[in-house]
Design a protein around this nucleic acid. Structure first.
Lengths: 73, 73
DNA sequence: TGAGCGTGTCAGGAATTCTTGACATCCGCA
DNA sequence: TGCGGATGTCAAGAATTCCTGACACGCTCA
């Protein structure tokens, strides 16, 4: 990562709020690998828009509910 | 593009709804190049989550208002 | 003690996103 | 007729995202 993400997410919280969903389970549901889920959850990098949408869909919430882009520049 | 995007967007409509904002102007405001705006607007590929957020921010609307992820697979 | 689960890391590589730079077309206007 | 503005395209390369595969740690349970 030459440039760490500025996008924050609530994936971990949402996972627990949805029946202790494990990272592996979530990964399978959104169609990515476990490592990808870990990296995104830890903010190693921001996901693509497609992956972001799928995550939001799994949790049944709007995208802005999962990811937040910090204010001013 | 080995895999064209499934994400739709309303960038063009939003541009016109915001004072005839040109692609070049928008590109500058969101911090990407003009070519990138064109490609995204035409659905050549889906933007990164960061770029998507900045676009939504320029137009002052939630992200789900700019991009839509088609329903079931 | 040993097996299984959940989480985290690393390395190398494939795929996608974004950039720079150049060139083409269409339109409106002096 | 010629110029400028807006849009679109192509090509090559840099940066980022995502993948496969392997290994480690802590915890629980038989």
């Amino acid at each position: 990562m030459v440039k760490p993400t500025r996008v924050e997410n609530r994936i971990r919280a949402l996972r627990f709020a949805h029946g202790e969903l494990t990272q592996a389970d979530l990964a399978e549901r959104i169609g990515v690998t476990r490592q990808t889920v870990i990296a995104i959850e830890q903010g190693k990098y921001s996901p693509s828009l497609e992956v972001a949408f799928q995550i939001a869909r799994v949790f049944g919430v709007p995208l802005d509910d999962v990811f937040q882009y910090p204010d001013g520049a």
